[in-house]
């Protein structure tokens, strides 16, 4: 693969046709993510960050531009090849999107069964991966019996079942409380460290990026306005969005500590 980045996005555009006219969500995105990175994409609502992420496994089809993952151009694949590639890209969602009809075991086994693994191998792999996300004892539970954090752990286990090289996180912690968010981020960091999986996470929470990511890109109105190492962007934010994020974060902390947290 040479020096090519692990995820390489060039000139990506996407326009949604809505009742109120066309909305240009992505206006020519260029992005590189290196192998083994935890890469954050941060932006306000409607900036296009989720759409960008969803173009990476083609839950959205871009209008123009290319997305390649590990040297494979995702945007040009036929249906069969796309399904094969998708098995190597895990994704977790804000709303978890677990199957209520299956147990925890069944949810994690699903991508393996779909990939055609033999039953015995599935059992082995599911047990292994449930241990990894510390849910070994919940295997026979149904999703409805679990807390939000546990559900997201099942989501992560399901996304990792096929041993992907890339894990996409679409606001995966946005429905969780701060403690749970922290523990999920620790889990993701551990997975990144131990398994070497590249993680791209989209979020509107500054703390998520600060806690988990090595690099980040700031997206504003369909364009990437700033990217770099997390630390350097925090120390020296150049885009208005990055500055706003940091200022709001600081104000929040100040307000919270002055008022003792009672009125929030």
């Amino acid at each position: 693969m040479g020096t090519d980045p692990f995820v390489k996005i060039r000139g990506l555009t996407k326009t949604f046709r809505t009742r109120d006219g066309d909305v240009e969500v992505l206006k020519g995105i260029d992005l590189d993510v290196e192998k083994g990175d935890i890469f954050g994409v941060i932006g306000f609502s409607g900036a296009g960050k989720s759409t960008l992420l969803r173009c990476m496994n083609r839950l959205e089809s871009p209008d123009s531009g290319t997305v390649s993952v590990n040297g494979v151009e995702i945007s040009g694949l036929d249906k069969r090849r796309l399904n094969e590639e998708r098995r190597k890209i895990g994704i977790i969602f804000q709303q978890f999107n677990l199957f209520d009809s299956e147990t925890v075991f069944g949810n994690v086994a699903f991508p393996l069964a779909v990939a055609g693994l033999p039953k015995r191998r599935i059992k082995q792999r599911v047990d292994e991966i449930l241990e990894l996300v510390e849910l070994g004892d919940k295997s026979r539970c149904h999703p409805a019996q679990l807390s939000g954090g546990q559900k997201q752990r099942v989501g992560i286990a399901r996304a990792l079942a096929n041993e992907p090289d890339l894990l996409l996180s679409d606001e995966a912690t946005s429905a969780l409380d701060p403690q749970t968010t922290y523990s999920i981020l620790q889990l993701l960091k551990g997975i990144n460290r131990r398994l070497g999986i590249t993680i791209i996470l989209v979020t509107h929470e500054l703390d998520v990026v600060r806690c988990a990511c090595k690099h980040l890109a700031v997206i504003e109105d369909g364009c990437i306005v700033e990217k770099g190492e997390v630390r350097s962007v925090f120390l020296n934010p150049r885009s208005t969005t990055a500055r706003q994020f940091i200022r709001i974060g600081e104000e929040f902390v100040r307000e919270y500590s002055v008022q003792g947290g009672d009125s929030i």
């Binding site: 496994n57 839950l59 796309l82 399904n83 094969e84 590639e85 998708r86 098995r87 890209i89 994704i91 969602f93 709303q95 999107n97 677990l98 199957f99 699903f110 991508p111 779909v114 990939a115 399901r158 096929n162």
Partner: peptide, 18 residues
């Protein structure tokens, strides 16, 4: 059926039949 579940299945490389 929630659309998200469908997307999750698609993202896992599930065939239409499945």
């Amino acid at each position: 059926v929630a659309k998200g579940k469908l997307e999750a299945a698609k993202a896992m490389g599930t065939t239409n039949w499945n």
